[in-house]
């Protein structure tokens, strides 16, 4: 797999930071605006796939290892389940929102029906966990397939 021309690489370099900012905005504002962990993670994974298509598989594998991706995905899943279990200890039940209204991080009380970035309890934390999981998971699929194809082409040539 050889990668694409200079024009495609330049456009990908310019638009990559904006795609990343948009994706992380969707994840961080998941409890305020439309979107959430899955949608933002899919947008960030699309940006990473753009770089993978514009450059080649070896260029990406010098920067991101496959083991890092599986570590990130497991970390996202583990923190998601751990937050759910903390609901039993500090709250009432599995998945109970124990942080809301406690005046701590993400525990602000919404004044007269208007939520802001510091409210939401465990919802923003779960958005971050699911976002990390979706970024690593969806990018790992394309990453592994691209590496398989580049190994196969190297064997033929």
């Amino acid at each position: 797999m050889k990668g694409m021309s200079l024009i495609v690489r330049t456009i990908a370099n310019i638009s990559f930071p904006f795609i990343l900012i948009y994706g992380f905005y969707i994840i961080a504002h998941g409890h305020l605006t439309p979107g959430g962990g899955f949608q933002g993670g899919a947008v960030v994974a699309s940006g990473l796939v753009l770089m993978l298509i514009a450059y080649n598989a070896e260029w990406i594998s010098q920067r991101i290892k496959e083991s890092h991706l599986s570590i990130f995905e497991s970390l996202g899943a583990l923190s998601f389940v751990l937050l759910a279990f903390l609901g039993i200890i500090f709250g009432t039940a599995f998945f109970s929102n124990f942080l809301v209204g406690t005046e701590s991080l993400f525990g602000g009380i919404p004044l007269d029906g208007a939520a802001n970035i510091n409210t939401g309890g465990i919802i923003p934390l779960m958005n971050f966990a699911v976002g990390l999981k979706v970024i690593a998971g969806l990018f790992a699929i394309v990453y592994v397939m691209a590496h398989f194809i580049s190994k196969k082409e190297g064997k033929i040539a």
């Binding site: 979107g35 899955f38 947008v43 994974a45 699309s46 796939v49 753009l50 298509i53 969806l138 394309v142």
Partner: peptide
């Protein structure tokens, strides 16, 4: 349904096309 629209545009139009 803007939630579904974002997910469809990212997954359907970009990731499945790349795969």
């Amino acid at each position: 349904a803007p939630d579904v629209a974002i997910a469809e545009a990212a997954v359907g139009a970009c990731l499945t096309t790349a795969i």
